[in-house]
Design a protein around this nucleic acid. Structure first.
Lengths: 204, 204
DNA sequence: GTCTATATTGAGATAGAC
DNA sequence: GTCTATCTCAATATAGAC
C-alpha cells in the first residue's frame, strides 16, 4: 500500500506483492514443494538471500498467498445481502445462487492464489491452518444447500453435503483450465456453472 | 500376477505391487515431491536401498501408478457398447451417461491411483506423458458431449468443451472427499453425479 | 530381497558487506 | 534492497556385503 501496487518500472526493487505474484505463479507451475527458493530467485532476477529480506521463510510466502485467496472466498459467503437486489433476507436458494456466482468470480479474479489454495495438502502448519479455514467455508455452503432443500427449492433426494461438494468440485475445477482472455468471460462462466448445477445439461 | 496379489504374510518380502500401494498412499498424503524415498522406506519397514531393488527410481514408481489409473479410465471410453444393454450403437447421450457412471466407478475403485493422477502437474517426462494421455481422454469426452448436443439430447447454449470440463471437474473432485465404507456407495454416488449433471439440483 | 555404508547434489536459510 | 559466500541438512541414488 505504501509504495506502488503494480506497474513497477525499470528492473528490480521488489516489494512483497511483486515477489508474491511471481512466487505464486511458480508454485502453481511446478508445485510448492518442487519450487525452490533458488528457482524463485532466478525468475525474479534476484539472489536467494534477497528474497529472505522480504519473507522470513518459504512457508511465509505460501501463508500470504493462501490468506489472500481465503479472505476473498470468505467475503463471498459473508456478504450480508443475498442475491435479490437490496432485499433484507433473500431465500436460501437465492443466496446459494449468489454465492455460486460470487465464487466463480473470485476464482477468475484471483486465479493464481485460489489455484494454490486448492492444491494445499496439509503438510505444514501453514497448510493445515488454510485447510481449516476451507472447511469452515465448506460447512457454510452445505448449510445453505440444506436450507434451500428445506425451503423446497432444491431436490432433497441428494444429500446436502454431497450436493455441495459436487457443486463446488465443479466450480473449483475451473482453475485447472480457465485462462483469462479466452472466449469465456467470468459472467458467462458463472452462468454456465449455475445452469448446469441447478438445471442440468439435459434439454427439456 | 506371478507371486500372489495381496494378503502377504508375516513381515517383509515385498513385491512391486505391495510397495506401489504404500507409495501411492504416501504420495497422496504428502504430495509426490514432499514424499522422500526415506519416508517410503520407513512406512514399508525397509531400507531405502531395498526400494531401489524393486524400482529404478522414484519416477518409475510414479509411472507405474499413473499407468494403472490411466488404463482404467481409458477402458471406460473404449468400451465398444454404449449403455443401452447390448445394443449395437447407442445414442451419444446414452453413451455419455454410461461414461459418466463408469468414470465414477473407476474413481471409487482405484481411488489412490486416480487421486495421484489428478494431481500431476507435468514436472517431469513421466508426468508430461500422463498429462498427454489425460488430454486424449478429455477430447473424447468433449466429442461425446458435442455429439449429444447435435442429437438434440443436451442443451447447446453451453460450449461442449466447457460443459465436459465442468462435468468431469465435478466427477474428479470426488477424490478430494470420498472415502470407501461411508454412507454413499459408488452406485449411489454415480446416480447423484448423473442427476446433477443432467437434470440439476433445482426441484421441478 | 535386504542391509549398511556412502557419494553427490541441491535444498532452505544465515552472515555480513555494499 | 541486494549481493557473495557459506552453513547445515536431507534428498536421490549407488556400491557391495549378506
Amino acid at each position: 500500500m505504501s509504495e506502488m501496487q503494480s506497474a513497477r518500472r525499470g528492473r528490480p526493487g521488489y516489494d512483497q506483492q511483486g515477489i508474491l505474484a511471481v512466487a505464486v505463479a511458480a508454485f502453481n507451475e511446478y508445485g510448492y514443494d518442487a519450487t525452490s527458493i533458488g528457482m524463485l530467485a532466478e525468475r525474479l532476477g534476484l539472489s536467494k538471500s534477497a528474497i529472505y529480506h522480504h519473507f522470513g521463510s518459504k512457508d511465509e510466502i505460501l501463508d500470504r498467498a493462501l490468506d489472500s485467496a481465503l479472505s476473498s472466498l470468505e467475503a463471498v459467503v459473508e456478504e450480508p445481502e443475498g442475491g435479490a437486489e437490496g432485499s433484507v433476507s433473500a431465500s436460501a436458494a437465492d443466496r446459494l445462487e449468489h454465492v455460486l456466482r460470487g465464487a466463480v468470480h473470485v476464482l477468475v479474479d484471483q486465479l493464481p492464489a485460489v489455484t494454490l489454495l486448492l492444491r494445499v495438502r496439509g503438510n505444514t502448519d501453514v497448510e493445515r491452518a488454510a485447510l481449516s479455514r476451507r472447511r469452515t467455508f465448506d460447512r457454510r455452503i452445505t448449510a445453505l444447500v440444506s436450507a434451500a432443500q428445506d425451503e423446497g427449492a432444491l431436490r432433497d433426494d441428494i444429500d446436502a453435503s454431497v450436493a455441495s461438494r459436487l457443486t463446488f468440485g465443479m466450480i473449483n475445477s475451473i482453475v485447472e483450465w480457465y485462462r483469462p482472455g479466452g472466449r469465456e468471460g467470468a459472467d458467462r462462466l458463472a452462468d454456465d456453472v449455475v445452469a448446469i448445477a441447478l438445471d442440468g445439461l439435459r434439454k427439456r
